[in-house]
Every structure is written in structure tokens, then in C-alpha cells.
């Protein structure tokens, strides 16, 4: 059953008299009980896509259906069935955690008794009992995020939107949040999250779409995407001259032309050569040999399974980890 469906969504913003195409063409099908991640660098259009699907901003072009309702024409019905935890969080810093929860539940239309029962359940699950009587302005980032998750869940939504759920959290809190999200999915909730963390999409998502410049550049399960780059990745970093590195690249390219089974693809990014090979153990000695013959020092070498970053690199020529810092 498809719970979130987006059909050719488009959104343009006017920013200082410049027209920015934040989302150019995004189509998604997300099934019930699935964790779906939108992965991409800042400014890729992930948040804009999510804000359109959650009725926060109007859809310029295209259609969207969430929980069986048309986002454009039945926004209030959509709102009833979704929970949304934004990047900013949105807990009221000047009311206690308890007051925040109760108010949210009451505004979602729960009666006084139901809201109290639900709040207590969530406090147990999200480990809020000790902090619930304090105001969020006294919370740590991790505590605050847990309360905000509870605020988005108080009405037991069918669909949960999480915008960068673990940004700014320490590793421990991040794993905790992953655990909660996994639990919610196991209970049948459909979850759409945005992230620029590779591991988050890799660990958590059943399916994901990699976005860049307002478009989806790859879609599938993490394994499917990584399988596009079958074999291993050899990364060799050397602080030598750029032309020396390019010389190496051309030598490897010759090998690639000779034996496609040995070396599939090869590219330079910064000081590093990325070599995609079928079998690392077979290719590694040959690569080392090339460097040795050219008398070029290797500063760093590694052999690994392809990651989602390699998928991103292959599609865009950039590394996701670098673009995030731009």
C-alpha cells in the first residue's frame, strides 16, 4: 500500500529577485511501514520536498497524496494523519515538557484523559520521565530532540516526517533516535526522513532517494544502490604533483581498457584516486606496482566496500561529505 505518493513535484522560490528552482522534478512512492530517506547535501531540495508533502508550503506543480488524502485539496485531513518534527524542533522553550505534550495532544483533538495516557506512554518509550517537568530551554540537544519526537507522535500518526532528525546530536543520542525510529516502523508507521548523513540513510532506511540540485539522482534500497558499484573501492591518497597523479590515472585507464573485469572505473578527487574494481585483492598489488614504478609515495591507501557516498560520487562527481561543508 502506497502511503506517500509524489508525482512530479516542483517548487520555485524568489530569493533576492533571483528565481531558485528548489525542487525541479521529484516523484516518490513510499509504502506503508517503510522508512524512506531523502539523502543529499544542504540545498538539495530535501526539506522543501518534505515541507510540500506535509502541507507547510504550497505545491507549485505536480500532485501529492499522503495517507490517502490529496495534499493540495485536503490539507486538513493530511494534517490529522501526519506527525512532523522539523529541523528547528519546535518545542516551546518556556513551557514544561509535560505542558508541551498536553497542549499538542489537545490541539490534535484528544480529550484530557486520552492525552494524559498517550503522553505517559511516550514518556516511557522516549525516556522523558526525568525531564518532563522541566522546560526545554534547560534540556540537552538529545533530550530536546526526544521531546520533539514525542510532540510529533502524541496523536499516533500514520505517517511521520522527520527533517534532519539527528543533526547536531552526539553519537549516543543519534543511535538512540535510530532505535526509536526503527521501533516505530516495526509498529507499522511510515516514516519519511531527510538526512545528509550517509550512515543514517544506510543504517535506517529501507529505501532512499539521493537528491542533488532539486532532483532525484538515484533511488532504491541502500543495497541496490551500492550494488550499482559492485566490487570494491580502492582509495589511494598521495601528496604528489597533480600531473603525476593524472599520469597514474592514465596508466590505470590503460589497464581498465585492457581488462574491464579487473578495473571498472577510476577517477581523481583532490589528492585521492578512487579505483572501482571487481576484486580488491586481485587489483591492489597491480595498483601498488604502478605507484612503485613511477616512484610516487603513497600517503594513504584503503580498500573498502562501496558506500552510498561512492554512489553520490559516481552520479555527481562530488563527495557528499565534502558538499555538506561548503
Amino acid at each position: 500500500m502506497i502511503v506517500i505518493e509524489a508525482i512530479h513535484l516542483k517548487k520555485t522560490f524568489r530569493h533576492r529577485n533571483r528565481i531558485v528552482e528548489a525542487v525541479k522534478d521529484v516523484s516518490l512512492d513510499i509504502s506503508k511501514g517503510e522508512i524512506f530517506a531523502l539523502l543529499g547535501p544542504n540545498g538539495a531540495g530535501k526539506t522543501t520536498t518534505m515541507r510540500m508533502l506535509s502541507t507547510l508550503i504550497p505545491i507549485d506543480e505536480g500532485q501529492a497524496y499522503v495517507a490517502g488524502y490529496n495534499v493540495k485539496t485536503q490539507s486538513n485531513m493530511v494534517r490529522k494523519h501526519i506527525g512532523y518534527v522539523g529541523q528547528l524542533g519546535g518545542s516551546d522553550p518556556n513551557a514544561t515538557g509535560w505542558e508541551n505534550l498536553i497542549l499538542a495532544g489537545r490541539l490534535y483533538g484528544l480529550d484530557r484523559d486520552t492525552v494524559k495516557t498517550e503522553a505517559k506512554k511516550l514518556m516511557d518509550i522516549l525516556e522523558l520521565n526525568e525531564i518532563i517537568d522541566r522546560m526545554p530551554k534547560t534540556y540537552s540537544q538529545g533530550q530536546k530532540r526526544r521531546l520533539e519526537l514525542a510532540l510529533g507522535l502524541i496523536h499516533r500518526p500514520d505517517v511521520l516526517f522527520l527533517d534532519e532528525p539527528t543533526t547536531g546530536l552526539d553519537p549516543d543520542s543519534r543511535y538512540n533516535i535510530w532505535g526509536y525510529v526503527e521501533k516505530l516502523r516495526a509498529e507499522g508507521m511510515t516514516i519519511l526522513l531527510t538526512t545528509h548523513y550517509l550512515e543514517e540513510a544506510d543504517e535506517l532506511a529501507n529505501n532512499l532517494a539521493i537528491m542533488d540540485h532539486g532532483e532525484i539522482i538515484a533511488k532504491g534500497s541502500p543495497q541496490e544502490l551500492k550494488n550499482q558499484i559492485s566490487g570494491d573501492v580502492i582509495m589511494v591518497r598521495s601528496k604528489c604533483q597533480r600531473d603525476q597523479l593524472e599520469n597514474i590515472l592514465s596508466l590505470i585507464n590503460i589497464l581498465e581498457n585492457k581488462d574491464k573485469a579487473l578495473i571498472r572505473e577510476c577517477l581523481i578527487k583532490g589528492e585521492t584516486i578512487y579505483i572501482y574494481v571487481d576484486q580488491g585483492s586481485a587489483a591492489l598489488p597491480i595498483i601498488l606496482d604502478i605507484f612503485k614504478k613511477q616512484e610516487i609515495n603513497i600517503d594513504d591507501i584503503s580498500l573498502s566496500q562501496p558506500s552510498l557516498d561512492d554512489v553520490f560520487l559516481k552520479q555527481t562527481g562530488r563527495r557528499l561529505q565534502d558538499t555538506g561543508k561548503e
Partner: peptide, 14 residues
């Protein structure tokens, strides 16, 4: 707006 409170209320069916 900066703390996200208004955004959170705006996704509610109110």
C-alpha cells in the same frame, strides 16, 4: 519562528 514553534503548530489540523 526561529525556535520552530509556529511551524509545529502550522502542521496541526487547527
Amino acid at each position: 519562528l526561529q525556535s520552530g514553534v509556529i511551524e509545529r503548530f502550522r502542521v496541526m489540523p487547527i
